Computed example of a mutant assay.
Amino acid sequence: MYKTSLVKIPKPEFIVFYNGPGETPEKWKLWLSDAFIGLEPGEKVPLDLIVTVYNINPGHNEGMLEKCEELSGYSIFVDKVREYKKTISDKDIAFRQAINDCIEHNILREFLKLHATEVLQMLLTEWNTEEALAFEREEGWKEGREEGEKKKALETAKNLLALGVSLDTVAKAVGLDMETVKSLAQ
C-alpha cells in the first residue's frame, strides 16, 4: 500500500467456453473493441479486452476436456440434451431423459443428483426463451414483408398515376383503398 514502485500482478486471461450449435473452430479470439461504436479502422483504444474462446462441443478440444472432468461432463450433458430434444418432442421428458442418462452413465452424477430440479427448470426456461425469440424473429420478418409489399404497392400506384391511369383502376390493380390512392394522386 505504501510502495512507490510498480507492484507486479499475474497476467489476466479471459476465457469463454463455447458449446453452441453453430460450427466453429477449436479456438478463436474475440476483441471487445469490435463492439465499439465510432471506432475508425486500425484505431487503437486505451483499453481493450481479448477473450480466447474454446469450442467444447464433442470432438473439439478433447485434450482440454480430458483434463477437466466437470467441463467434459458439461459438454457431454449439453450434447445429450440436444440429442434427446431432437428425438422427443416433449421438452420436459427430453430434458429429464438427458439428466437421467447422464446420472446413469456417471456424467456429472453427483451434481445432477443434487440439482436435477434446478437444471431442469433452467433448461426449460432457456429453451422457452429461444423459442420465444425465434417466434419474435418470424413475426418481425412477416411484418417486414408486409411493410415491403405495402411500400411496393404505393410505389406502383404512384407510377400508374403518373402514367394517367384512373384512380379506380390503380386501386384495383395494386390492392389499395380508394382513400390512399386519392391522397397519392394529390
Rank of each mutant, 00 (worst) to 15 (best):
M1S: 13
M1G: 13
Y2E: 11
T4K: 13
L6T: 12
I9Y: 15
I9C: 13
P10Y: 15
K11V: 06
K11A: 07
P12V: 08
P12C: 03
F14H: 09
V16M: 04
V16S: 09
F17W: 02
F17V: 05
F17E: 02
Y18Q: 08
N19R: 15
G20R: 10
G22M: 11
E23S: 13
P25G: 08
E26D: 14
K27D: 02
W28E: 04
W28Y: 08
W28G: 05
K29Y: 14
W31P: 00
W31F: 11
L32V: 06
L32M: 12
F36Q: 09
F36W: 06
F36S: 06
G38H: 03
E40W: 07
K44R: 06
K44Q: 13
L49W: 07
L49V: 15
I50T: 11
I50H: 15
V51D: 07
V51W: 10
V51S: 12
V53G: 08
Y54G: 02
N55C: 02
I56N: 04
N61Q: 07
N61L: 09
E62I: 09
E66T: 09
E66I: 14
C68R: 13
L71G: 03
L71R: 08
Y74N: 10
V78D: 01
D79V: 05
K80G: 04
R82N: 11
E83R: 12
E83N: 12
K85L: 10
K85N: 12
K86D: 12
K86R: 15
T87E: 14
S89H: 08
S89Y: 07
D90C: 08
D92C: 05
D92L: 05
D92M: 05
I93A: 07
A94V: 01
F95A: 01
I99P: 00
I103H: 02
I103Q: 01
E104L: 09
H105S: 10
I107G: 03
R109D: 14
E110D: 14
L112M: 11
L114E: 15
L114Y: 04
H115K: 12
H115C: 14
A116K: 13
E118D: 13
L120K: 04
L124S: 05
T125V: 06
E126C: 10
E126I: 14
T129S: 15
E130T: 14
L133H: 10
L133T: 07
F135T: 15
E136W: 05
E136P: 11
R137N: 11
E139V: 13
G140S: 10
E143V: 00
G148E: 06
G148W: 01
G148A: 08
N159H: 06
L161W: 05
A162G: 06
G164D: 03
G164I: 05
V165F: 03
S166K: 03
S166L: 03
L167M: 07
D168T: 11
A171R: 05
A171W: 07
V174F: 00
V174D: 01
D177Y: 03
D177W: 02
E179P: 04
T180W: 06
S183M: 04
Q186V: 12
